[in-house]
Amino acid sequence: MTSESAATEVTADSLGNLLMFLAENGYADQVGSWVSDAVENLPITGAQLLSALGRDSLAQAAAEADMTVEAYAEQLAQELPAAADAVTPRGELLDDEEFDEHLQAFQS
């Protein structure tokens, strides 16, 4: 996610938890494509994220970004596949130090 859009700090644990939650709640194909080097990233929509995560779970981050929940979900949907791909170069989340390096490179 770009630095302007990241309303809350992204950590390896928080991104990992989000990816696991999405995978366990109907979006395993999308998440699998984001962490795989073998296939193209499958898209996800803001509406799908809202459905999976719930409005309340995005409300604080949306408020911090000065966005509506719907707009925040759309932006997250646009950026999440590439962000997840950037921090999973070998098909798994990097350790904290490598994660931060890859996330910073993605944000610039």
Score class of each variant (00 low, 15 high):
residue 77 A to R: 00
residue 24 E to C: 12
residue 43 P to V: 00
residue 13 D to H: 14
residue 84 A to S: 09
residue 80 L to G: 00
residue 99 F to Q: 05
residue 70 E to I: 00
residue 16 G to F: 10
residue 6 A to C: 05
residue 96 D to R: 11
residue 3 S to E: 12
residue 22 L to S: 08
residue 98 E to S: 11
residue 95 D to N: 14
residue 74 E to R: 02
residue 53 L to G: 03
residue 81 P to S: 02
residue 25 N to C: 03
residue 82 A to L: 06
residue 5 S to W: 08
residue 26 G to Q: 07
residue 23 A to M: 10
residue 91 G to F: 13
residue 83 A to F: 06
residue 73 A to L: 00
residue 23 A to V: 06
residue 8 T to W: 04
residue 20 M to W: 12
residue 70 E to D: 14
residue 15 L to W: 05
residue 38 A to C: 15
residue 76 L to T: 02
residue 52 A to P: 14
residue 100 D to F: 11
residue 59 A to N: 12
residue 95 D to I: 02
residue 72 Y to K: 07
residue 95 D to R: 13
residue 28 A to C: 10
residue 67 M to N: 04
residue 23 A to Y: 05
residue 40 E to N: 15
residue 30 Q to G: 10
residue 105 A to F: 09
residue 23 A to K: 08
residue 73 A to C: 02
residue 105 A to N: 09
residue 47 A to Q: 10
residue 81 P to C: 02
residue 104 Q to A: 14
residue 3 S to W: 09
residue 64 E to N: 15
residue 93 L to M: 10
residue 13 D to M: 13
residue 27 Y to I: 01
residue 52 A to L: 06
residue 95 D to L: 05
residue 56 D to T: 08
residue 73 A to W: 01
residue 88 T to E: 04
residue 10 V to H: 03
residue 34 W to D: 07
residue 57 S to K: 10
residue 17 N to G: 12
residue 27 Y to M: 06
residue 11 T to M: 03
residue 48 Q to F: 04
residue 27 Y to N: 04
residue 36 S to F: 13
residue 71 A to W: 02
residue 107 Q to R: 14
residue 75 Q to M: 06
residue 82 A to K: 03
residue 10 V to F: 02
residue 42 L to A: 06
residue 97 E to S: 06
residue 32 G to M: 09
residue 62 A to P: 02
residue 63 A to R: 13
residue 28 A to E: 12
residue 21 F to V: 09
residue 49 L to K: 03
residue 85 D to P: 01
residue 55 R to L: 09
residue 101 E to Q: 13
residue 24 E to S: 14
residue 108 S to Q: 15
residue 49 L to Q: 02
residue 108 S to W: 13
residue 52 A to E: 10
residue 75 Q to F: 01
residue 41 N to A: 13
residue 43 P to W: 00
residue 46 G to R: 00
residue 94 L to E: 10
residue 82 A to E: 03
residue 48 Q to M: 08
residue 14 S to D: 07
residue 5 S to R: 04
residue 36 S to C: 11
residue 16 G to A: 11
residue 24 E to G: 12
residue 62 A to Y: 04
residue 99 F to L: 04
residue 54 G to S: 06
residue 40 E to V: 15
residue 54 G to A: 08
residue 83 A to V: 13
residue 82 A to M: 05
residue 71 A to C: 03
residue 28 A to N: 09
residue 78 Q to T: 04
residue 2 T to E: 12
residue 83 A to Y: 04
residue 64 E to M: 15
residue 18 L to I: 05
residue 93 L to P: 02
residue 43 P to N: 00
residue 44 I to D: 00
residue 38 A to Y: 15
residue 93 L to V: 03
residue 50 L to G: 06
residue 73 A to P: 01
residue 74 E to F: 00
residue 35 V to E: 15
residue 70 E to T: 02
residue 87 V to P: 01
residue 55 R to V: 03
residue 38 A to R: 15
residue 19 L to M: 11
residue 10 V to L: 11
residue 57 S to P: 11
residue 3 S to F: 08
residue 36 S to R: 13
residue 80 L to Q: 00
residue 19 L to R: 09
residue 104 Q to E: 14
residue 14 S to R: 10
residue 92 E to C: 10
residue 43 P to I: 00
residue 49 L to I: 04
residue 45 T to K: 00
residue 9 E to I: 09
residue 91 G to L: 13
residue 64 E to F: 14
residue 57 S to T: 13
residue 4 E to F: 10
residue 50 L to Y: 02
residue 104 Q to L: 13
residue 75 Q to K: 08
residue 77 A to D: 01
residue 97 E to D: 11
residue 12 A to T: 13
residue 10 V to W: 07
residue 93 L to F: 15
residue 33 S to M: 06
residue 72 Y to L: 02
residue 53 L to F: 08
residue 58 L to T: 04
